[in-house]
Design a protein around this nucleic acid. Sequence first.
DNA 1: CCGAATGGATGAAACGTTTTAGCCGCTATA
DNA 2: TATAGCGGCTAAAACGTTTCATCCATTCGG
Lengths: 343, 343
Amino acid sequence: MATANIKEVARHAGVSLGTVSNVLNRPDTVAPATRQRVLDAITSLGYVRNDSARQLRAGHSRTVAIVVLDVANPFFTDVVRGAEQVIEEAGAMLVVCNSGEDSARERRHLELLEEQRVRGVLITPVGHGPQPTLDKLIDRGIPVVLVDRGAGRASRCSVAVDDVLGGRLAMDHLLDQGHHRIAYLGGPLSIAQVADRHAGAAAALEERGSTAELRVAVTSNLTVAAGRRAAEELLALPARQRPTAVFCANDLIALGVLQELTARGLRVPADVAIVGYDDIEFADAAAVPLSSVRQPRDQLGRTAAQLLLEEAEAGDTHRHRHVVFQPELVVRRSSDQPRRARP
Amino acid sequence: MATANIKEVARHAGVSLGTVSNVLNRPDTVAPATRQRVLDAITSLGYVRNDSARQLRAGHSRTVAIVVLDVANPFFTDVVRGAEQVIEEAGAMLVVCNSGEDSARERRHLELLEEQRVRGVLITPVGHGPQPTLDKLIDRGIPVVLVDRGAGRASRCSVAVDDVLGGRLAMDHLLDQGHHRIAYLGGPLSIAQVADRHAGAAAALEERGSTAELRVAVTSNLTVAAGRRAAEELLALPARQRPTAVFCANDLIALGVLQELTARGLRVPADVAIVGYDDIEFADAAAVPLSSVRQPRDQLGRTAAQLLLEEAEAGDTHRHRHVVFQPELVVRRSSDQPRRARP
DNA sequence: CCGAATGGATGAAACGTTTTAGCCGCTATA
DNA sequence: TATAGCGGCTAAAACGTTTCATCCATTCGG
């Protein structure tokens, strides 16, 4: 019960405490015979390293944290899997923290992570304002990599997908299909991705000099339930004002909209076309397969993790980098039906 | 840069080191004036507790780990969210580890967690054989709660849903609908849930004295992709041998099957009926809304976390408990069409 | 045969907390 | 007035590692 420590192992093997440590950390510097005696003692006592002590000495831990907006969102789980792969290859451990789009929880997590002296933090921050807690981490020398958040501040690396371009792709597509009343669904606008995708959509409209109308309906978060509620609002509009197409800030919202619309007897895409964002695995399996803007999710995670490890290795010589991936529109049935010139 | 420690804070505030510790841990035992001076010093130095040192002293950490089979599976993300809620309320931290249904990775995670002296572990183990690494944790006095895994061993608490009953519910339903050739899709069979759900289905058949046939197709894992592959195999069968209904070990498989079947021109449920398991959020949003066996996912997580904290508090006086929840069949369109007596 | 180099081990310091025993000065009680 | 009790604080030990300076014995080159 009373967990054996390195000293007991040493006594058991008839060597000094430092030698045991050497067996553990630099096995080749200790004579084979001695090494074997120590290893035997270790197994016979069931000794397991105490990581707290190790960390205390080292000054930092060997774990890396990733703070995501929503663990249940397939987009983030894929990012996590990508990051995990790289981190584990490096012999470190990835812990997943969920901010739930709540900046208080985000702050709480960051504080705990700072207390733990984690090796680094991958994060998709909740807001896009200043982030004092995050800055503090950086001051302390803990590497931070922004995930899915461009606008590279000079003080940190970042990995992102061009959300403005993504918004533009979606909007161009809908305009090409002849839609004139289009709604953008997503929120809160404090989430940068939500804002950027909208900005892209608006820019596309602008550039074409199109007369089409882009209405925005802000949702409280990015879940299926929020999508359903947003669809209800749409349905409450008089038919002549109702959008003929909706572009959703993510696929969860889109799935919710799809569910609610079909439940209320509207046809997709005949009555309302839908384009989502992320191209999660379930988009293709939806009632009406969902058009969506695809992001290289696990590559996002992998690259972020690589940048982090790089920075952790390099220390002061590190120069921050900003990697931007290109999104790609995947057209499926939910938006694949051109309108006549004027509805 | 050189992270301030408690000693510097003490010097700065003109008190002893022990007093600073008291301010941090038992604020009411120190005079208001002194306390304020210490707090000022803390903020002005940007002092942050070093958790390694704290843990070293305490003998264990304040984090709890949950090891799941697949972070990207919505079933587990919901369990995680439930557990998270309880753990965070208790002021602890939940770290999520992903075994990916790979027992080597599971073992590696457990070893690291043991080194970290975590407060406890919630786990859905990969296999159902003996688990030496897990036993070692328990020997060491680290509480372990089995999640979604009944068959309560006496040495640990467990939280589960009656998978045998779930299998029975699904099978009874399909038999009620008049199906005679039914397939069970899932795997690997080493996963207890997969085996139990099958056992339930087989038991239902047996009890009814039904002459219906229950074919088993083992998949390599529980993903959408595996479901698609399984459906291909089904399609390769001559039409007269092809099952008229499939019961899938989880919803991901079911969604994959649904996708592949409809892509190949079969109608669901007219040609093939489908019942899934878990009732994840996306089941209802599927191309054909999916019948499924619902589990109280976040309650599973919450209860598991509560049991764990209880055990961590109680220590030796703790008596292990085994909580079993009842699943519930949700019938949707994918299986809602009775057959004629004999096909 | 001497000095230097080398391989292999040791002892002690250091990491930053928490906790325990004890000290000091004051007040309330008998 | 002596004593016990108490509030507020301090000093030091302990937690389990890693690392660094040191030491011993052996071997090697000259």
